[in-house]
Amino acid sequence: MERRTFLRGAVIGTSVATFGGTLMRGAAYAAPAQPGPGPYGALGAADARGIQLPSGFTSRIIARSGQTVAGTSYTWHNAPDGGACFADGTGWIYVSNSEISPNGGVGAVKFNSSGTITGAHRVLSNTRQNCAGGKTPWNTWLSCEEVSLGYVYETDPWGVNAATRRDAMGRFKHEAAAADPVRKVIYLTEDESNGCFYRFVPSTWGNLSSGTLQVLKAGTATSGSFTWANVPDPDGAPTVTRDQVSGAKRFNGGEGCHYANDTVWFTTKGDNRVWQLNLTTNTYELAYDDSLVSGSAPLSGVDNVTGSSSGDLFVAEDGGNMEICIITPDDVVAPFLRINGQSGSEITGPAFSPNGQRLYFSSQRGTTGSSSGGITYEVTGPFRS
């Protein structure tokens, strides 16, 4: 059976890091990932925070909803969701969406080079159901509203410049965004049971004020070729964007999205799949499907996704057994961590620090099952590069 081969390594600077790789293929598609031993070994016993981790990894709590972030006067938001890290001198910033309405938005925590929290601040306020999003190569955070006719807001992680609503990126039930600096586009997922997958082509790369919204067109199979077609009315009125282009491919609940080295991955929660678009060949396939695994599926409730410098994907569960699972470049899927005692929650916002040594994420509703019970964590350990 042919296997995927990823281009290893990372391009790391003050603006963006890109990870992962491209599919090398012959005539046939590779099989979706199958369960197997993870590169970090089995999960150990739960630590004091109820998190099971492989040997050599440790966790700490960064922030709790409704409480001030340690060492600051900033109160952390409810329902923490999508997030990303940005280099800040020798330190970094972790931004986190708030998936509540009508007072959602984005908060941020600042760290110095040793990982000590040095500040926290608000980035965006008074928006609705800010679920996922994505970072840009010019160091802004795209925060996406997961509501009907929702908007994308371009924000400043430092909280200095005012956020800007980017109407040209379309009005629909937005989820995640992923920037592709090679093709100079932004990919967008849609959280509808009959949703679509989009890309936004800015008139000028680095400026999202104008451009063209396009939708992916393909057949009904789980693999094949695809094309892009312009969406005539990105404002979604009177016809919603997903119904404007004949032949637009439907996806069951688009969620997380991640770009690296001529490949974009995105998740669909309605059918527990991870899709892979191979951008150099304009073909697509399944990177993971829980109905196609041998034995019990380690990954269910697929949601937010990020990547590491090794080419590994880290996929967070909404439900399931509250795990972040890893999908390796050789198509093995395995649990990386598990949160115990929080079955009424979901894991959100996985993102690596710029040096790749720390992983941030949240349990959106924590132990209470309520949006006011969110907990944001950091895991440190020997992540492979």
Results as ranks from 00 to 15, higher is better:
residue 105 G to L: 08
residue 108 A to I: 14
residue 102 P to S: 15
residue 128 R to F: 11
residue 101 S to I: 10
residue 90 T to N: 14
residue 129 Q to E: 13
residue 97 N to R: 07
residue 99 E to Y: 09
residue 110 K to Y: 09
residue 107 G to Y: 02
residue 125 S to A: 14
residue 97 N to S: 06
residue 97 N to L: 06
residue 118 T to P: 04
residue 128 R to Y: 12
residue 95 V to W: 05
residue 127 T to F: 05
residue 121 H to D: 07
residue 105 G to M: 07
residue 119 G to D: 12
residue 103 N to G: 11
residue 120 A to F: 00
residue 120 A to Y: 00
residue 92 W to F: 14
residue 109 V to R: 02
residue 91 G to R: 05
residue 103 N to M: 11
residue 91 G to C: 13
residue 128 R to G: 07
residue 126 N to E: 13
residue 100 I to V: 15
residue 118 T to V: 05
residue 116 T to N: 14
residue 120 A to N: 01
residue 129 Q to A: 14
residue 90 T to P: 05
residue 105 G to D: 04
residue 123 V to D: 03
residue 121 H to M: 02
residue 114 S to A: 15
residue 129 Q to P: 04
residue 107 G to I: 01
residue 122 R to S: 12
residue 111 F to H: 00
residue 116 T to M: 13
residue 100 I to G: 07
residue 100 I to D: 05
residue 122 R to E: 11
residue 122 R to T: 07
residue 116 T to E: 11
residue 126 N to Q: 14
residue 110 K to S: 13
residue 99 E to W: 09
residue 94 Y to L: 10
residue 112 N to H: 00
residue 116 T to A: 15
residue 115 G to Y: 01
residue 101 S to V: 10
residue 118 T to R: 02
residue 99 E to S: 05
residue 107 G to V: 03
residue 129 Q to Y: 12
residue 110 K to V: 08
residue 106 V to M: 04
residue 129 Q to K: 15
residue 113 S to R: 15
residue 100 I to P: 00
residue 98 S to Y: 03
residue 98 S to C: 01
residue 109 V to Y: 00
residue 113 S to N: 14
residue 90 T to E: 15
residue 105 G to A: 08
residue 105 G to N: 09
residue 116 T to Y: 06
residue 129 Q to S: 14
residue 120 A to Q: 01
residue 100 I to R: 14
residue 121 H to I: 04
residue 91 G to V: 13
residue 111 F to G: 01
residue 95 V to I: 09
residue 127 T to N: 07
residue 108 A to R: 00
residue 98 S to Q: 07
residue 96 S to V: 08
residue 109 V to K: 02
residue 113 S to T: 07
residue 94 Y to S: 05
residue 127 T to D: 06
residue 98 S to H: 07
residue 104 G to H: 12
residue 120 A to C: 04
residue 98 S to N: 08
residue 117 I to E: 08
residue 97 N to W: 04
residue 102 P to I: 12
residue 103 N to K: 10
residue 95 V to G: 06
residue 120 A to T: 00
residue 121 H to C: 02
residue 114 S to Y: 12
residue 121 H to G: 04
residue 95 V to F: 10
residue 115 G to V: 12
residue 99 E to R: 13
residue 119 G to H: 01
residue 115 G to I: 13
residue 121 H to Q: 04
residue 108 A to T: 09
residue 93 I to M: 13
residue 127 T to I: 04
residue 91 G to P: 03
residue 101 S to R: 15
residue 125 S to I: 12
residue 106 V to Q: 02
